[in-house]
């Protein structure tokens, strides 16, 4: 066991997979000499050389497309989005080519690539650097979308993503890179498609992901103090969603609250609510409730910024409201 920071857990995952498979390479802005904007690739340029840790010009759509071409011809690229928001500039390559080309080509090609980097709302980074692209990308067929939330799952998930035969959008959170955790010294993988039951409980299912997992866990004490026993599930996979785990929980609690950092309109929760209604409506004792970020560009001002995202206190209040509502 070794206490490891989240960004180092990711670095270990990349390093181990590059050592294991020589077709794995990293491509992106400042991944080489600079070591990555959040130091996820620190030292790898020195270890693997300039072609396996390729510093690119600032040309997101083209270097993402280049990774698609490399993946089609047998390599396994890991694209680093210096900030995931910049991948809006690569939307075409991610959606049309990474996502749809395997299908459009009738299975001629598959695209084993990972697109990873920091997403989410940071501290006063302004609207453009505070994006939650998982909501924009969830409609693209052919993509897998994963959000890590702890050093343990970050490492195991990234290793699985690198080994996957499909394009995986891998979301890290800009405020979670310095989380610490003891990691096993032996190699381990975490499956891409399984939600994580973080805290078993019987009264209400709380679905969340990424940084909001930690807001929910902060809220748990307040919820317990009110005498309720919540089940907290970290979705991990945002596409496809693990409805087996969700269904099992709903059959136990019959109540669901979703806490997300993406905006309310067209968000991850919007999709999950629709699917829960399709699949588990008869199990529900109350309408599914969602706590989302507000539908506004993230403001710079710190106080306004904190008002746009869900705070632990709101989660406690939401649980209380749902538990005390007359059914």
């Amino acid at each position: 066991m070794a206490e490891t920071l989240l960004f180092n857990a990711l670095r270990e995952a990349v390093d181990e997979e590059m050592g294991r498979d020589e077709t794995v390479f990293v491509i992106g802005e400042d991944v080489g000499h600079y070591g990555g904007s959040y130091k996820v690739t620190k030292g790898l340029y020195e270890k693997y050389g300039p072609l396996r840790v390729l510093d690119t010009p600032i040309a997101e759509n083209s270097f993402t497309g280049m990774a698609v071409g490399a993946a089609m011809t047998g390599l396994r690229p890991i694209v680093e989005g210096m900030n995931m928001g910049f991948l809006l500039l690569a939307f075409n390559q991610i959606a049309n080519n990474a996502g749809m080309l395997p299908y459009t080509s009738g299975g001629n090609y598959h695209i084993p690539m990972v697109i990873r980097g920091p997403g989410g709302v940071g501290r006063q980074l302004g609207a453009e650097h505070s994006q939650r692209l998982e909501a924009y990308f969830q409609a693209v067929p052919g993509l897998k979308i994963v959000a890590c939330s702890t050093p343990y799952n970050a490492k195991g998930l990234l290793k699985s993503a690198i080994r996957d035969k499909n394009p995986v959008l891998f979301f890290e959170h800009v405020l979670l890179y310095n989380l610490k955790e003891d990691l096993p010294s032996d190699e381990y993988l975490v499956p891409l498609d399984k939600a994580d039951v973080v805290r078993p409980g019987k009264d209400v299912t709380i679905l969340t992901y990424s940084r909001m997992r930690h807001h929910v866990l902060q809220a748990v004490k307040g919820i317990e103090a009110q005498g309720f026993d919540p089940e907290v599930i970290d979705l991990i996979s945002l596409k496809p969603i693990d409805y087996d785990t969700i269904g099992e929980s709903i059959r136990k609690t019959h109540k669901v609250i979703i806490v997300e950092e993406c905006m309310r309109t067209g968000g991850i929760a919007a999709e999950i609510i629709a699917s829960i209604n399709d699949r588990f409506f008869d199990e529900l004792d109350a309408p599914v409730m969602r706590l989302s970020s507000q539908d506004i560009p993230t403001p710079y001002n710190g106080r306004l910024e904190s008002l746009t995202i869900v705070q632990p206190k709101q989660i406690v209040e939401a649980v209380e409201k749902m538990m005390t509502a007359r059914v």
Binding site: L51, G65, M66, A71, Q93, N97
Partner: peptide, 15 residues
């Protein structure tokens, strides 16, 4: 959109 993909195939040869 095909040009970057072609570039990736060419990169693959060099790699």
């Amino acid at each position: 959109e095909g040009i970057p993909v072609a570039l990736g195939a060419a990169f693959q040869s060099r790699y």
